[in-house]
Computed example of a mutant assay.
Amino acid sequence: MVSVTRVLAVAATAAVLGVGVPAAAGASSGHYPVATWSMNEGPGARTMIDSSGNGLHGQIGNEVITDVDVRGATGYRFTRLQPDRPPTHPRHLVTVPDSSALDPGSRDYAVTLRLRTTYQFGNIIQKGQATTSGGNFKFQIPNGIVQCLFRGSNGTIIVQASRRINDGWWHVVRCERTRSGVSLEIDGRTVARRGGWTGSISNAWPLSIGGKTDCDQRDVGCDYYAGDLDWVEIEAR
C-alpha cells in the first residue's frame, strides 16, 4: 500500500513540474475510484489500462496517438477532424465496454480529467447519447468552453465554464453530480454549479473518449474531440 505521505509527495512534485497525476484514490471525501486511466501507455498501444484495480480497461483506436510528450506530461493525442464531414472515424475513439460500475446510477458521481487543446469543438468523454434509454452523461468543449451534462430519469442538468480553456495549457477539469446538483471545477476552483436532482442514469452503452460511437456525420455528427488528454479518473460514493 502506498503511504499518504508518498502520495502527497508525488502530487507536490507533479505540481512543481507541471505534470498531472490522477487524484489519489478516495481523496474526495467519501468517494472511491471506479476507474483510473493514466494514459501512459507506450507508442502504438491499443489497450488503455485501468490502474484502479477494477479491470475497466479500454480499447484505443489506431487513429489515437499514444505516448505523446507535451509540456511535461505524457498522454494521448486526438488529431483534428473536420466537424460533420463524412466519413466516420471510429478508430479516433477510445472505448471502454459497458459496465454497470461506469453508470452513475443514483450515486454521487464525479469525472475528473486533464486536457490540453487549442481547438474549440468536440465531445471529450461520454456514456450514452442524447436519445439513449436510461440517460447519459458527457463532457464537451464548444467554443473552447467546457460543459458537463447529466441526463437522468428526473431530468437534465448542464453546467458550463465562464471562460475558454483552449489556450494550449494543461487544465484539470472535474464535474460532480450529487443529489443536490451538478458542479464544475477547473484547476481546483468551482466555476459553475446548478441545483437539482437528475435521477438515476444507467445505460447499456460503452464509455467513449474522443467522440460519439453512434453517428454518421450526416444526420448525427460524431463530435470528435481534438487535443491531448493526460489522464481520466471516475469516482463514486
Rank of each mutant, 00 (worst) to 15 (best):
E63V: 00
I141N: 06
T190E: 12
V96H: 05
G26D: 06
D50R: 02
Y76A: 00
R114M: 14
T131C: 12
S99C: 10
R91W: 06
C175A: 14
V159I: 11
L17S: 13
E233D: 10
I65H: 07
S202M: 09
M39Q: 02
R6Q: 14
D108V: 15
D50P: 00
L149I: 11
E63M: 01
A101C: 08
V159Y: 01
Q217D: 08
R85N: 10
T112A: 08
Q126R: 12
N203V: 01
Q217H: 11
L81K: 08
W197P: 04
R116A: 12
T13L: 13
A23V: 14
Q217I: 05
L8A: 13
S51K: 07
R194S: 13
V111S: 04
C222N: 06
T36P: 00
N136T: 11
V182I: 11
D67C: 05
D187T: 13
N136F: 15
A101Y: 10
D167R: 02
G105P: 09
Y32A: 13
G196A: 13
D216A: 04
S29C: 06
V232L: 15
R107C: 10
D69F: 08
V111N: 03
A192E: 04
S52C: 03
S202K: 04
A23N: 04
I141C: 06
V96L: 10
Q217L: 09
I65M: 07
E176T: 14
A9H: 12
L93G: 05
H57K: 01
V146W: 00
Y225W: 05
I201H: 03
A204T: 11
I201A: 05
H92R: 05
K212N: 12
A45K: 02
T131I: 06
D216F: 06
G20A: 14
V64I: 03
V111C: 05
G196M: 10
G221F: 11
Q126A: 12
E185P: 01
W169N: 15
R71M: 12
G210E: 08
V34F: 02
S99V: 04
Q147C: 03
R194D: 05
